[in-house]
Nucleic acid binder design. Structure first.
Lengths: 191, 191
DNA sequence: CTAGATTACGAGCACCGTAACAATA
DNA sequence: TATTGTTACGGTGCTCGTAATCTAG
């Protein structure tokens, strides 16, 4: 998905040396240097200050390093989202997981949920979930994931309902059911 | 920066045909098909439903198309940010521009600003500025840009001060000066 | 002398294009 | 028949690795 030069660049930036980065990447220092030089010439920007005793990121390199991390993670998650998109419209709840919304508590509640609805299946979709892009995630809810981990769980337990779409409207949070409930246990307002 | 297969994929998705996309990309249909097949096999996902009368995006393809647009734009902006990062710490105000915060109003106020401070220079840094990632932009303010277009202008006009860093703190917005004022016109609290 | 960066040269492979074929309206 | 998708084959160009060179501590 993403340019492999980016990963090499990040590794070099972290290692502070072409040789050390090459060792970690299981390629030769020659390849690392060439990739870095090519990236710099393509971008027309100097990313490192070279010395015979290692490297130092320039301001441009620092800027790109920040962006590269985000890009790589976003690309990886995009692949997972695409792979999981196939199973839409089935009795599958797609739960967004991230360091902030871990899947750990899933395990605790899983037996209870399974007892209520044995046919129900879950999909864990990794997500870049930070405070900054939380609103973006909520805005796109229902497209790639049905809800961040803990919210989905809470919704399942409290409302005894399957899948809900969260949509932010001013200060309030409204709930909309988006997928059919395998076992109908009550009546819910749907859209 | 990004995998060229992504751009090809987007073009195919938009054109709805390998042949039409090939025409627009100035390459042969063979190359387009091979790139698409390679992307699908790498991602292990079927992106198109092939017919002899054109193509149709699958759910996975639709998901990837959304993400690919964002990735490509983000990659392009990352390059510009890296190129502009060199000029940090000078008397340059980096103004983030986007469809939401256009540079148009710049032109109106420029004569007044120039009269106050002729040495001051501006840099227009493109940004993916949507409602969803607005908080991310504000959180990273001062790293790549000093402020979204109109906010920077307002700050310049109203406070008669050069560059300010906006930081969101709960409901209030605080201001911090980040770069030196070429002509000192008053005393400001600095950090 | 050691550690790291850099360059020259050769080999392997990925990608593209040409050509031919298949299938549908 | 025209349009589109698909496959086989051959060539070009990119990228990697080996080896040698350069430089500072």
């Amino acid at each position: 998905m993403y340019n492999p030069q980016l990963k090499t660049f990040l590794c070099v930036a972290k290692a502070g040396s072409f040789n050390k980065a090459a060792e970690q990447l299981f390629i030769t220092p020659t390849a690392v240097i060439k990739q870095t030089n090519l990236l710099e010439s393509n971008l027309q920007v100097q990313l490192f200050e070279r010395t015979h005793r290692g490297l130092k990121l320039t301001a441009a390199g620092l800027s790109l390093a920040r962006d590269a991390k985000y890009i790589i993670q976003y690309c990886r998650d995009s692949v997972t989202r695409a792979q999981n998109a196939i199973q839409t419209n089935s009795s599958v709840i797609r739960i967004g997981i991230s360091p902030i919304t871990p899947a750990q508590i899933m395990l605790e509640f899983w037996p209870k949920i399974h007892a209520i609805c044995p046919d129900l299946k879950f999909q864990l979709v990794p997500y870049v979930n930070t405070v900054e892009n939380a609103r973006e995630i909520l805005a796109n809810l229902g497209q790639n994931i049905d809800g961040p981990g803990f919210l989905t769980i809470l919704c399942l337990i409290c409302a005894n309902a399957p899948v809900w779409k969260f949509s932010e409207s001013r200060c309030a949070v409204r709930f909309h059911c988006t997928t059919p409930w395998p076992k109908k246990t009550g009546s819910h307002k749907r859209e």
